[in-house]
Design a protein around this nucleic acid. Structure first.
Lengths: 226, 226
DNA sequence: ACCTGAACACCGTTCAAGT
DNA sequence: ACCTGAACACCGTTCAAGT
């Protein structure tokens, strides 16, 4: 909690916590969450692997700090502006979050891996809660609604990232659709008779448009004046 | 794709694919997704670690097969019954999925880790799509709506599981709330002035009630007659 | 106080050899 | 065809020793 700005004595630190997080993010972007390693981070910043334990108690703490810093880069500008229509405020936040996470696909895993209870994660929920309150929701509904929004945003981005960016040699888009259709064909027709008819439709939507369409439906459900 | 029922020649198999998946699930339940290992599975079923590569090409394939089997255990009974109100059908499916996943928290990670394009994953989406179609949605809206529902269900369960079941010594519920409040207090009051007022409210909801409340809001948004 | 080298108990996967 | 032992190139973490 307390952050002493200078160390008492002894040898100066060779690197900074930020440099360690930078290295972790680099590894994350390069090879996905599975390829982030203590040894790799240490090599990148130029210290012995075990020296990292002077900065963070263990690997999990490094990843937690990375998630926190990551969320801190999202919470900024125009969502506080109460002049804008509330739906527009949520949409802007949603798109910003999505942009950040799609740019660092491995981070999604980390986000959903642990409890979202860091300061920045809570700040995100608070922002959403305030927007809903401004929209006219009663406090309880605003709080619960902010949870529903978080669920939708993180869930949608998680599924999108899982679709797009599987760790190894990802098949191209047409290949993936073909695979999906083939898989679909193995479903017994007696059980899901309408399957083959709607298969193409189901497979079609994985875009910003789908993301925003879903968001609008969720907002419809949360709109206190609907 | 073809499933030969008998092997051509040579030594009989020592175990079955199912036994391997059983062992994987056991490891998953015991220590979370991180503690599932090829060597652990092999030890459990009583073969050498590398013998496992006769059954599956690699660890990822084992986990993929486990996810598929897992989803297969969910898709059953009363969601096909067109007599029931459509919201009730979705709610039943949602609760069944949630029960299964909360019972095997490590599986959530696996589900969200890869693309949901196996036969059973698609069947799940198809069921939801059909329910929405029965509710009166046009085919496109039903397909897109089924995606929104999947996002909500998996997202909500993922967040819930992450809250409840972090891998190591999980703090008790009051401890967690205290931690969350403490974290919240570090948010600068000038930026989020209403934070402290709503903190208690935000922290309060992580229950079946919240899960179903959110589901109802999503269904409100997807209801073609709303 | 922070760093290093060495070690411990693990990983996933491959290869050559047995039956 | 399936199994095994041995090996390779990794992990996260700890400990004793250096400065």
């Amino acid at each position: 909690m307390t952050t002493p700005t200078s160390r008492r004595t002894g040898r100066p630190r060779a690197v900074t916590e930020q440099a360690i997080l930078d290295a972790a993010l680099l590894q994350l972007d390069a090879g996905g969450a599975a390829s982030v390693s203590v040894r790799g981070i240490a090599a990148q910043v130029g210290i012995a692997p075990n020296a990292l334990y002077t900065y963070y108690p263990n690997k999990a703490a490094v990843l937690r700090a990375l998630v926190e810093r990551f969320l801190g880069e999202v919470n900024h500008d125009r969502f506080i502006d109460r002049q804008l229509p509330w739906r527009q405020r949520v949409e802007a936040l949603a798109l910003e979050l999505r942009t950040h996470l799609v740019a660092h696909p491995g981070a999604v895993h980390l986000l959903l891996g642990g409890p979202m209870d860091g300061p920045n994660a809570l700040a995100l929920r608070e922002v959403l809660s305030e927007v809903l309150a401004d929209a006219g929701s009663r406090p309880d509904d605003a709080a619960r609604g902010s949870y529903v929004l978080m669920v939708y945003l993180l869930g949608a981005i998680a599924l999108e990232v899982a679709e797009i960016h599987q760790p190894d040699t990802a098949p191209t888009e047409p290949e993936r659709i073909a695979t999906r259709r083939a898989a679909l064909d193995t479903i017994p027709a007696e059980i899901y008779p309408r399957t083959s008819r709607t298969a193409g439709t189901v497979a079609k939507y994985f875009t910003t448009e789908q993301f925003l369409w879903g968001l609008q439906r969720v907002l419809d459900g949360l709109d206190p004046h609907a």
